[in-house]
Amino acid sequence: MQKIQDGECYVEQTFSRLSCIEGDFSGVEFEDCTFEHCDFSGSTFARGKFIDCTFKHCNLSLMKVPSTRWFGVEFIECKLVGVDWTKADWPAFHLDSELRFKHCILNDASFFGLTLQGLRLDECKCHEVDFREGDFSHSFMTHCDFTNSVFMRTNLQSVDFTESENFNIHVLENKIDNATFSRFAALNLLYSLNIELVD
């Protein structure tokens, strides 16, 4: 049975089917590690690091990440409901933390006020996610469902929203210069201008 010990550094290791529900970890560093079918729901990773790691088919819902650094991490088919990413450690000199989410559930997450340029969301469910006052310029948010997610004073310049839907982005309260939208989905942007559309 694999175990994660506080204060340890793990390099190029694979953790498979590890169940640590509501676990409490401090000062643990992971570099070039892979997590497969692990359950860290409700767990706390404090003052740690995840560098160039991959999570596949993992449950990370309600995970807490106080002062933990994330760089070059990819999540594939993971559940990350209710994660408050604002509590993590995001160094000012890394404008692009190279976070990638593919086929993930990110409902009720918070990215409030974060600078995560180049963020990649592909085919993700992003219901009621808080993107307010963040800088996500040059990101890729394609094939996603943004039902009830909030954008306000958000930098979305040059973001690719191709094939994404159900977003409510006020064009006067957010920066959307050079952003890309699918033709029909772009009609949602007009509703925020209080104008009438006719056939």
Rank of each mutant, 00 (worst) to 15 (best):
S182R: 01
C78R: 02
S182K: 01
I76P: 11
D199P: 13
L95Q: 15
L156C: 06
T14P: 07
S164Y: 03
L119Y: 05
T14R: 09
D24Q: 08
L95E: 15
F140V: 15
S41F: 00
A92N: 13
I105R: 15
T162R: 08
D145R: 06
I51G: 14
F40V: 04
I169E: 02
K3A: 10
A186H: 00
Q157F: 12
F140Y: 13
F101G: 07
K79E: 15
T115R: 14
F15K: 03
V83C: 08
R47P: 05
H138Q: 13
T180A: 10
W85E: 03
A109R: 03
H127L: 14
D108K: 11
R183Q: 10
I51R: 14
E29T: 09
C58E: 06
G48A: 03
T86C: 08
S26I: 08
E29I: 11
K3P: 11
Y191R: 12
E133G: 10
F35G: 00
I105F: 15
L106D: 03
H57P: 05
E133W: 13
L172F: 08
H37S: 14
T154L: 04
D160F: 00
L197S: 02
E98A: 14
F75A: 00
S137G: 12
F181I: 04
D6Q: 02
L106A: 02
L114H: 06
H127I: 12
E128V: 15
E123P: 11
E77N: 12
E128C: 14
L172K: 11
S26L: 09
F45A: 06
S158P: 02
F55D: 02
S41P: 00
N148A: 12
S43L: 02
F131A: 06
I176A: 01
T180P: 08
Q117G: 08
I76H: 12
G82L: 04
A179Y: 00
E123R: 14
K175D: 10
H138F: 15
E74M: 09
I21V: 13
T162G: 05
L60M: 13
S19Y: 15
I76Y: 13
G72T: 03
C144H: 03
D177P: 04
D6R: 03
L156Q: 00
